[in-house]
Design a protein around this nucleic acid. Structure first.
Lengths: 352, 352
DNA sequence: ATTAGCACTCTTTTTGATTGAGTGCTAACA
DNA sequence: TGTTAGCACTCAATCAAAAAGAGTGCTAAT
């Protein structure tokens, strides 16, 4: 059977109404709301076909129809195709986004020393605006380079190492050394470090590590320090994930079921499972990916849809922004919001 | 009316059974489980009295009895009194706590550069062991002193300031300055900073701020730097709150009601409202406080009990550990756990 | 090809009856 | 005087049957 234009319009009407209400939608409703001027009976016939084709289902014999994952998928793809050569509505939404960014900037300005806090703020604002749960991951990327290293003594046998990476990501650590070390030696170490280590990425550092040690004899101190630096840099490289608005899921009855909500919030809370959204690089449509229902890699999200966008900041930081909501989420709005956020995020950071 | 020993025993039995089952408990049950060898009829009479006194209520005419906040309160107080001069069971629980600490230590060792992460780990472990939601607040205290300041140049017009406070709390910030600054000047500034600023607390710093500026003429650069330092230090001083195991509340049906759960998780998520537990200093019984039902300062926790303990680490950090659960939580276990954690926490940190 | 009409299905809501847990009270008892 | 057995009573919870309502599929007419 073929999906002609009329069928598609009916499918679209079903989905849109379902997005709004969350209730199964019947033929009479479609007859009324759509501009097809067909009777409910005709619609019924078409709907029977659509069901046969797998785009919609009845929860039970005498209920309206509900879109399947396949149905959503078709709908989402069509939106994307449409977006591709119609750059419409942009202006309408622009002002709103402008304000969003304004808010973020304000929060951001207050404590821009901690990347994580900024992400947190963005995640919250985003959650607030969309009414869905959000996640943002950041990773500085494995090829992020060391820009600057500074060693100082804070106590008799305790040293502080501060490492600045490209993009001004800062890591530091206080650590204990086995023997007292003179100010002069610290100076020497600093010189030495900044000539050998600067400009190296984590991987390069690892490679060079033994070479450097060999070159400088078996200096106990140097080895200790280098190891600490390596550890610290490698940690900085971790993928960090923050979430926002997790309780938004209670706004959708189909997700408020105690068991579903629990699992969902649990995965959002410990963030572990969310990495699967980050791993899969996004080569397709402008980096925006859709996971509808069973398509999500996380089992607690079977009843959800997840939309992710990847971003790359001018400082080399890359990451993923994700929006988690019910399958009947407002895909158009989400895509638009994501696109905007992504574009402006870079702007926001480069300005600093 | 007077609360004689028998009445108290019955009340205790009611509460204990209710803690276990979460269901209203009737006179027959008490007759069976208690060792009073009284008939249900007698128990009934006593229970009528207890109800009159306000310790228990019937949810409806023909249901068993449920403890009131007042009833819980009496019970909790009696446990504490009992604890005071019986140091029993300790050994039994000791091993378990030992292991808890072991776990935390392990997590802790891996990335001890970030206090917040440690707290997070502790909160999670605690939540895991108790099956309740947990919160931990840290604040370095307003009298925490600056130990060490280090300024360095990372780009043409960007400076990095690293501040180490007592207890090796480190803050740093990269900031842009209006004019290029020579290496020599940075050196000078560093000298200057470490002689004037070291040893000051946030409050003292604020006081001295203008004095220092006046003394050094209207050096644009100095003023900028000092302000940044002040801002950064003040931020470091913020109360930080982490939570753990928020989804544990789903383990208790009376809290799983969608509306209650939503409100609860929301407050736990944005942490803002939790500060009220920190503010009220805890002068009484070893610093452990109980908030039963309506007693909690947070309205979303009306159906919960909250138990908090305050702690103070050897490095001056103070804070509050809180456990949030249903009113029928296992108060004895919680008290014990809190006491243990508190004692060991200090040990854990001073060892580092 | 479209539509009106109708029988049919299945969920949801309503209603009423039944059950069962638990109480309060009274009267008997030690 | 304190304790207990017994009984009538209350009320939530459970269940079944009935009614209502939404929506469908099919047939026959347009």
């Amino acid at each position: 059977m073929e999906l002609d234009n009329r069928k598609f319009k009916i499918l679209e009407a079903v989905i849109q109404d379902y997005l709004r209400t969350g209730e199964p939608v019947g033929s009479r409703t479609i007859a009324k709301i759509s501009d097809l001027s067909l009777s409910s009976a005709t619609i019924r016939n078409e709907m029977a076909d659509l069901e046969e084709m797998g785009y919609i289902v009845q929860p039970h014999t005498s209920a309206g129809r509900v879109p399947t994952d396949k149905g959503y998928r078709l709908y989402v793809d069509s939106i994307l195709a449409q977006k591709a050569h119609a750059e419409s509505q942009r202006d309408a939404a622009l002002k709103k986004r402008e304000k969003e960014l304004e808010n973020i900037k304000k929060e951001y300005a207050s404590r821009l020393d901690r990347m994580e806090d900024v992400m947190q703020a963005v995640a919250r604002t985003l959650a607030n605006d969309t009414n869905y749960a959000t996640m943002i991951s950041t990773s500085s990327g494995r090829n992020n380079k060391i820009k600057f290293v500074q060693l100082s003594r804070v106590e008799e046998k305790k040293l502080l190492v501060v490492i600045v990476m490209e993009g001004n990501i800062i890591r530091n650590k206080v650590f204990r050394v086995s023997e007292t070390i003179s100010e002069k030696n610290i100076l020497r170490l600093n010189m030495m470090l900044n000539t050998t280590v600067t400009g190296l990425s984590v991987e390069q550092l690892e490679e060079k590590l033994s070479a450097i040690e060999a070159e400088n004899g078996n200096q106990q101190m140097l080895r200790e320090v280098l190891n600490i630096i390596f550890e610290t840099v490698r940690n900085a490289d971790d993928v960090q994930i923050v979430t926002g608005g997790t309780t938004n899921i209670f706004k959708y009855p189909e997700l408020s079921v105690s068991e579903i909500a629990r699992d969902l919030i649990t995965t959002l809370e410990d963030k572990q499972g969310l990495t699967s959204f980050v791993e899969t690089a996004a080569p397709d449509s402008e980096g925006i990916r859709f996971y509808i229902g069973e398509e999500t890699p996380v089992k607690s999200m079977r009843d959800c849809s997840v939309v992710t966008a990847s971003y790359e900041l001018s400082d080399g930081t890359t990451g993923t922004i994700g929006i988690i909501g019910p399958k009947r989420m407002d895909y158009e709005m989400v895509v638009e919001t994501l696109n905007n956020i992504r574009m402006r995020l870079d702007e926001l950071f480069s300005k600093n």
